[in-house]
């Protein structure tokens, strides 16, 4: 095999690897180039965080707009305090919007859906959601139904 041909095929092989990596980054993990840089942080308190996990999705109208960074227990109110990073481009979420925990499909993972309010002012870095709606607890729901309450 001529050295030139060999070098070319090795080059193609390396490029193939790089393309595969880019494919895994963009198409598979949905990494948006440059989008990571600008995010701002907002908080929400829930009575029951349910099966919410860190790295979970935050969406508006079904479109992912951010990620959950952490979930902690607030020692004073005994509520779950969820910290999330919202994409910097979405800087016009009305302050009276509410954060709702939803489940994708029957068994899918839980995520936060922001249902949009009507206020003129927008949420900024460090703000908290005024109204929240906790996770739908299937077990409790069935329990309530069965006991006729």
């Amino acid at each position: 095999m001529a050295r030139r041909t060999m070098e070319v095929t090795v080059g193609v092989f390396m490029l193939l690897g790089v393309f595969a990596l880019i494919f895994l980054a963009l198409q598979v993990s949905g990494l948006t180039p440059g989008g990571n840089g600008s995010t701002y942080t907002v908080y929400a308190r829930f009575n029951d965080a349910g099966g919410l996990t860190a790295r979970g999705r935050v969406s508006m109208a079904g479109v992912t707009v951010g990620r959950i960074r952490s979930i902690e227990l607030d020692r004073d109110s005994f509520q779950a305090r969820v910290t999330m990073d919202i994409d910097g481009v979405i800087d016009n979420i009305p302050t009276d919007s509410s954060a709702v925990i939803r489940t994708s499909g029957l068994l899918g993972e839980q995520y936060i859906d922001i249902s949009v309010g009507a206020d003129d002012t927008s949420m900024a870095d460090g703000d908290s959601f005024y109204s929240t709606q906790s996770a739908l607890n299937l077990e409790r729901l069935i329990g309530n139904f069965a006991s006729g309450r």
Partner: peptide, 19 residues
């Protein structure tokens, strides 16, 4: 198909750890 995938696969945690 792609949407669910992108929502759950995390580049730095999943892809990078695999690498």
């Amino acid at each position: 198909f792609w949407g669910n995938m992108q929502a759950s696969v995390e580049f730095f945690d999943d892809v990078m750890n695999g690498i």
